[in-house]
C-alpha cells in the first residue's frame, strides 16, 4: 500500500547531470580553484549578488581595480561622457592586439615592407581583415580622443582640481597623433610616403632646432630606408611605451581628483 509510488530508475542524462554537478562542486571546493578565483568571482562556490561581492569584484581584479568600488551615480550616465575616454582606451587595446598580429608578418625594410603588406591580403589568414581593423581603429582613436577633449572642455572638467590631468590629456592627444602618424609611413606605398613627406616638411620649418629634429627623425635629409626603421621602432615600441605611462597617470589622476567631474 505504501509502496504504490514506484521508485523510478534515474535515466542516463539524470545520472550524468548528477555526477557533473558533484564534480563541479568538488572542483569549486578545491584549493586550486579557490586560489585562482578570488572572493567575489562569479566562479566561486556560493556566489551571490551582494554588496560585499560587488565590492570584491572590483577590489580583487587587477583590471577592474582601476575603478573605485563605488562611483557617483551621475558618472554612469552614458549621456554625460558618451564613454569617449573609455572608447579611446578600448581602441588602444584593439590596436595593440591587431598590431602585434601584424608585426609577425612585417619587415621594416624598404625592400620588404610594401610586399609584406600586400602579402597580408593573399597569403595570411585574416591578414587583410586585421590590417583593416588596425587602420580604421587608428582613425577612430584619433577621432575619439579629439571628441573626448571637446567633451571635457564643454563640461568644464579641466578646472581645479583636474588641471594637471587636462595637461596629461593634451600630452596623450599629441602622442595619439604621433602614433597614428608614425604608423602611416609603414605600408611604404605612395600614399604613406608622400603624406609623411608633407608632414615632416612642416616640422622642418620650426626655428632653431627644426632641421635637426627632422634629420634625427628621418635618419637623413629625406625619407628613406632609415626613416622606415626609425618610425617602425617609434610606432611599435617607444610611443606605446610612453603613452601607456601617461595613460596610467591619466587614469590614476581621474580617481585621485575625485572621479569624473560633477553633474552640470
Amino acid at each position: 500500500m505504501a509502496n504504490t509510488i514506484q521508485k523510478r530508475k534515474p535515466t542516463i542524462t539524470e545520472k550524468i547531470g548528477e555526477s557533473t554537478g558533484s564534480m563541479v562542486q568538488k572542483t569549486q571546493e578545491s584549493q586550486i580553484w579557490n586560489s585562482i578565483f578570488r572572493p567575489g568571482s562569479i566562479f566561486r562556490k556560493g556566489y551571490t549578488d551582494s554588496p560585499r561581492n560587488r565590492s570584491y569584484v572590483i577590489m580583487n581584479s587587477v583590471l577592474y581595480h582601476l575603478h573605485p568600488v563605488k562611483v557617483k551615480r551621475h558618472a554612469v550616465k552614458v549621456s554625460y561622457t558618451l564613454c569617449l575616454g573609455g572608447l579611446s582606451f578600448f581602441l588602444f587595446i584593439l590596436l595593440t592586439v591587431t598590431g602585434i598580429f601584424l608585426m609577425f608578418f612585417y619587415r621594416p625594410t624598404a625592400a620588404a615592407a610594401w610586399s609584406d603588406i600586400a602579402a597580408l591580403k593573399t597569403s595570411v589568414t585574416f591578414g587583410l581583415l586585421v590590417r583593416n581593423m588596425h587602420r580604421w581603429a587608428a582613425h577612430l582613436m584619433v577621432l575619439s580622443v579629439f571628441l573626448h577633449m571637446a567633451r571635457v572642455f564643454y563640461h568644464g572638467a579641466y578646472k581645479a582640481p583636474r588641471e594637471f590631468n587636462w595637461i596629461i590629456g593634451i600630452v596623450l592627444l599629441t602622442l595619439t597623433l604621433l602614433l597614428s602618424f608614425t604608423g602611416y609611413l609603414l605600408p611604404w606605398d605612395q600614399l604613406s610616403y608622400w603624406a609623411v613627406t608633407v608632414g615632416t616638411n612642416m616640422m622642418g620649418f620650426s626655428p632653431v632646432f627644426g632641421d635637426s629634429v627632422r634629420f634625427v627623425l628621418l635618419g637623413g635629409k629625406q625619407i628613406g630606408a632609415e626613416t622606415l626603421l626609425r618610425w617602425y621602432v617609434l610606432h611599435v615600441l617607444m610611443l606605446p611605451f610612453v603613452i601607456v605611462i601617461f595613460m596610467a597617470i591619466h587614469f590614476w589622476r581621474v580617481r585621485k581628483d575625485g572621479g569624473i567631474s560633477g553633474p552640470l
Binding site: P51, R54, S55, V57, I58, Y64, H67, P68, V69, K70, V71, K72, R73, A75, V76
Partner: peptide, 8 residues
C-alpha cells in the same frame, strides 16, 4: 553613489 559592478 552606486556600485561600479554592475552599473559602470
Amino acid at each position: 553613489k552606486v556600485h561600479t559592478w554592475p552599473h559602470l
